[in-house]
Design a protein around this nucleic acid. Sequence first.
DNA 1: ACATCAAATGTTATCGATATCTTGATACCG
DNA 2: CGGTATCAAGATATCGATAACATTTGATGT
Lengths: 334, 334
Amino acid sequence: MSKKGTRRHASGGPTMADLAQLAGVSKITVSRALGDSPLVNPETRERIQALAREHGYKLNISARNLRLRRSHTVAVIVEMKPSTDRTMFDPYPLVLLGGISQELTAAGYSVLLTTRQGASAAAVQAADGLILLGQGAHQDAVRRFDKLNLPMVVWGAQSGSDTHVVVGSDNRLGGAVVARHFIALGRHRPVFIGNPSHPEIFERLNGFIDALAVRGIKPLLMRRDEFTVDSGMDAVHSLHQRKVGFDAIFACNDLLAMGAIRATLDLGRSVPADVSVVGYDDMPLGASFLPPLSSVRQDWQEGGMLLARKVLALIEGEPASSESLPVSLIVRST
Amino acid sequence: MSKKGTRRHASGGPTMADLAQLAGVSKITVSRALGDSPLVNPETRERIQALAREHGYKLNISARNLRLRRSHTVAVIVEMKPSTDRTMFDPYPLVLLGGISQELTAAGYSVLLTTRQGASAAAVQAADGLILLGQGAHQDAVRRFDKLNLPMVVWGAQSGSDTHVVVGSDNRLGGAVVARHFIALGRHRPVFIGNPSHPEIFERLNGFIDALAVRGIKPLLMRRDEFTVDSGMDAVHSLHQRKVGFDAIFACNDLLAMGAIRATLDLGRSVPADVSVVGYDDMPLGASFLPPLSSVRQDWQEGGMLLARKVLALIEGEPASSESLPVSLIVRST
DNA sequence: ACATCAAATGTTATCGATATCTTGATACCG
DNA sequence: CGGTATCAAGATATCGATAACATTTGATGT
């Protein structure tokens, strides 16, 4: 079936040049017709578009990207720790991704997903913009990708010295809200469970401490590196062994909170009568926990959408500034 | 020759041509040097690579993609329903993605993440291969992307008529394993909770039914569309109201199972003494549930890696066949 | 000394789409 | 009727990297 004129290309379909020949016009006219440019006669346009459909023409994105110097692609760099085989402990990154994806797709962009390590770094530089996820978004990572000179936004906590755009929940506020909740309940021996070496957790802790300080209350920090139920239980058992008194627990994650509650109940104390507990992230499951868990809710989807909007703005050459998203305390039974 | 020599390009860095001029060689030599080709003199190579580093040279991926007709990119199409759907909020797709990402990255590929709807469909065709996620992977979606004529693999349940490569957990086996577990425990009035209109769930149900049939047992189907704790509770309450007897529950998801257990306990019956319950997916939280939940575990990460390996094989022109991953029953207290 | 060969580098064409600059044709105006 | 808008379409150059083919040079063998 192969004649010289109708050569099939290895990659498959016909090119604009092929269509041009079929239609008896030049390449550029085909380009215009397919782009609905007003520069072509409506009849010609129709004819060419029909021809394109008929022959299953597909635009070669790589060629267009090269010519336009734009890929309409945003790279999302996710920190996937090699250590834990469970990639990330929680569903949130996906929700974040969902928000990002939704917004970018709507704007005609697509998402290039990359992990921090390895070879795919090469592909990143074809992107029009960058979104850095993964808690902390460690400075070295930021600096590394900064060198690409692309519009970039980072999810996480703002640290004063940063020059790039950071979007994140207002973790300080999150801590403060919980503190005020405890104060309103008349608690005065609160405990914080979590790992403050993550910038975001650090902010929560600070907000917590500062808001408590207003009443002269100093929380006890139970540092725990794992964000698991077991870790939460362990923290409370440890408090008990050390005979430390406490009447409120702020766990920086719902799993920790559930563990803490379980351990507290095991020790024969009541939640919330004896001990108030508040978690963080408002996992769907928390509402079904017994007793239903109070928690601080972040709007991840909105976060993702905001991240996306910021990169898009930067890509368009518009200014964009760092921003914190409000959080809300969902009070249930604990 | 007027201004060309020193012109800075809009997109930023120098090109191979620029480097070539700086080094006093031709473009192709630069290309070879940067590609560590043995065709260039080691000294020359060093010199050029040093120059590249010094001037912050970045390869233009779009140009290379065009020339090579390969993007070293695999598109992953995720079904994200805009509504509050299960897919988006479960951790599993992310784990799957993690596996995919890990394997592809290792092979020098990157991941183009796309949702099924919308404009980003254009970008997909630049990919070297396709992975279709999202339960069901509905036939229309499959057919639509099949037209792109790209190597494609699908995550989900195999339906006999499919010609494309399907990778998924062995859901039939999952159902059968639970059935045999119930039989071993001497249960004879089992209930299935879930939504069998999803192909994967349908398979679980079939495996369950068939394996029970060996002992002449017929399970009761409680159809529930939502995969939530509430839905699980509701199912059991409904059973109770209708005065239907049961001594075993197979919930096609852990949240349903937890709900079912909660409701069962609420009704004054004991788990597992009176009623055995098995969930599905083995969520991390299930192990910390009270009582610790028995569940069927699928290896999502391995699934993702397998998907990736299959597309890569297809891309390389090698054959690949559909495959089911084994599942395992994790017996805990329920 | 001359042919042969291999190493190192260069020349040219190409991947496919599109911006810029022209050209040809028709209409419109005073 | 000459001159200028207006519209439709073409010619050419370009984006940046690389494959295929071509050339130069020095070394080796007989």
